[in-house]
């Protein structure tokens, strides 16, 4: 009798354990199915969810994007305030990496390394990654920077206290303190333009179509096919920022 009871309870336990194990397994496995580029999608797929693509293979380093951005968005002219800028990477045959971005690329670039020493060279435009899990939004102590419902990281300049914690938190160096307004300033993805049906200033002036603005919810859209047809990467993926700026032909040297 007692023996039988033990057996029964053991059987029950095994059943329960199996059920729990199964739950656990699906619980662990399921979220991974949803992770695309380490970002999850917002709840409403009918609304736009802005993302951005940059094709390094197409960029010729003319710096028109950085220039147009300053003119469109009232960014100070001085060479240490940028919402977007272009970097020239030169990887030499000896393995060393040379990076430069004189005035953000607005005045163009010169390649001073002789041809014989160059292993490869390319331009990398940089801007806010409009991260879905933004470290800057996380860090803002007062809620003066936020992820808008359509996935753009914006600043409330009438509410920012200017503590600069978000500048420290951004891994990509995309924020600066506006010297006249004394609040933080950053790329808004030309929110005033894209919400009126226009494209961003940088996309407008890019002569080689290296920059793509797009809606990540639009499966017919340009950005979607760009990501589908190229091997895209984000910057610093190990930081798990949920970056929505996708680069084609991104080299490992780029940081």
């Amino acid at each position: 009798m007692g023996n039988c009871r033990v057996k029964q309870s053991r059987r029950k336990f095994i059943k329960a354990a199996a059920a729990a194990g199964g739950l656990l397994a699906t619980g662990i496995v399921n979220p991974f199915n949803a992770v695309i580029f380490a970002t999850e999608r917002p709840e409403d797929p009918t609304k736009p969810w802005w993302g951005y693509g940059i094709d390094i293979e197409k960029c010729i380093g003319c710096g028109r994007c950085a220039n147009a951005c300053k003119l469109e968005n009232d960014v100070p002219k001085e060479p240490f305030y940028f919402r977007t800028w272009v970097e020239q990477y030169t990887i030499k045959n000896d393995g060393s990496v040379k990076v430069e971005s004189p005035n953000g690329g607005i005045n163009g670039f010169k390649q001073t390394v002789p041809e014989a020493d160059i292993f490869k060279a390319f331009f990398v435009p940089k801007m806010c990654n409009h991260c879905h899990k933004s470290p800057c939004v996380q860090a803002c102590p007062v809620g003066a920077t936020y992820d808008s419902p359509d996935g753009v990281v914006l600043v409330d300049e009438s509410y920012c206290i200017g503590c600069r914690y978000c500048v420290q938190a951004c891994p990509y160096g995309c924020r600066y303190i506006h010297p006249e307004k004394n609040v933080v300033d950053k790329c808004t993805l030309c929110y005033h333009r894209i919400s009126k049906g226009k494209t961003t200033a940088c996309v407008e002036v890019c002569p080689t179509h290296a920059r793509i603005l797009g809606d990540l919810n639009d499966q017919e859209g340009e950005l979607y096919s760009f990501m589908k047809n190229h091997n895209c990467l984000v910057l610093k993926p190990h930081l798990n920022t949920g970056s929505k700026l996708y680069y084609n032909a991104l080299s490992a040297e780029v940081r």
């Binding site: 939004v137 996380q138 860090a139 803002c140 102590p141 509410y159 920012c160 206290i161 503590c163 600069r164």
Partner: peptide, 25 residues
């Protein structure tokens, strides 16, 4: 005194952002 807008410092008490390490200061 280091803030860009010292007069807005009260915001850190009126609307502290729960995810920010600085907010609970």
């Amino acid at each position: 005194s280091h803030l860009g807008h010292p007069l807005r410092a009260y915001e850190i008490l009126s609307t502290p952002h729960s995810t920010s390490a600085m907010a609970i200061f």
